[in-house]
Nucleic acid binder design. Structure first.
Lengths: 150, 150
DNA sequence: TTTTATTCCAAATAATATACTAGGATTTAA
DNA sequence: TTAAATCCTAGTATATTATTTGGAATAAAA
């Protein structure tokens, strides 16, 4: 498993805010109860998303959160990269550079690189708007994207 | 991270056997020392691959392992499925059926399904032979496969 | 026939990562 | 001044992964 509970919760939270995108702030309490997620756990997640700049927050009474971006401009990849330590499918590719000393002789590294690139490309091709509309692109039937040739 | 150390070691072991595919048995001791992997850990991995039918073993002195299949007929997906509990990118998709009670209302599930399918398709499109030849297919440049349309 | 080198098997432990909780400071509307 | 919220840091519990331990079974070689 590559994407943790934290990342999945982040998406559900963003979807909830997308569905209640009126300009008003929505409290964590409301989101937590609607999604059956601990509020304290959500706090940590929201903190990442806020730092990432895709949420606007207001403090104090009547405080809460709302989207800082248009759902159509927000990719799933962006959201997940804010909450997950790494989206890489293997340890070898975590961090900015490959540190393994055997990297240049490694026959498997190119495979992991391609897989990583494939995953990233797909997640960057889907937006929050797509999810809200229930329009998740089928990579097998999306001409011009490069996926459907396998 | 989706693919564990165990799966990566399994691949390296299969590559080693592919590079020494003479018909003779190769001992775990030899593989372990050449790959700097604990022999006891390799035993568990080899056990999975043997049960999966892609290795032939011989016991006793002069015993060891060799490939039971042609490298060109053995996909990376096959190998990894024998050693990893699941290749699914999220918890939700582990096991044969989705057990989550909110599955039918879930706006994220289709995304995970597509991602899972994409990953599986890629890993099944690459063979051990490809790895041995250093010919890992670039999904962006593989006409007719369906990948390169993103 | 004994030794030696191997596969084969099950379980225990260690290390790490993930999920979740606790406690409280700060802010702002009522 | 109170209440309801965000914000922040740290702690703990749980689960998963990685690795070790100990030995039985097998078969070639001495």
């Amino acid at each position: 498993m590559m994407i943790s509970t934290k990342g999945r919760y982040a998406l559900r939270l963003m979807i909830y805010l997308g569905e209640h995108n009126t300009g008003d702030l929505v409290s964590l309490k409301e989101i937590a109860s609607s999604q059956s997620i601990s509020m304290k756990y959500l706090e940590m997640i929201v903190s990442d998303l806020h730092k990432g700049g895709i949420l606007i927050s207001g403090r104090g009474k009547k405080g809460g959160y709302r989207l800082a971006v248009e759902p159509a401009d927000c990719t799933i990849g962006q959201i997940l990269k804010m909450t997950e330590k790494s989206l890489a499918p293997v340890n070898c590719l975590e961090g900015d550079t490959v540190t393994c000393e055997k990297a240049d002789q490694c026959l498997t590294l190119p495979l992991w690189r391609q897989l990583d690139d494939l995953i990233d490309s797909y997640l960057e091709s889907v937006t929050l708007q797509d999810l809200l509309e229930g329009n998740v692109p089928d990579w097998r039937e999306k001409p011009g994207t490069g996926f459907n040739q396998l």
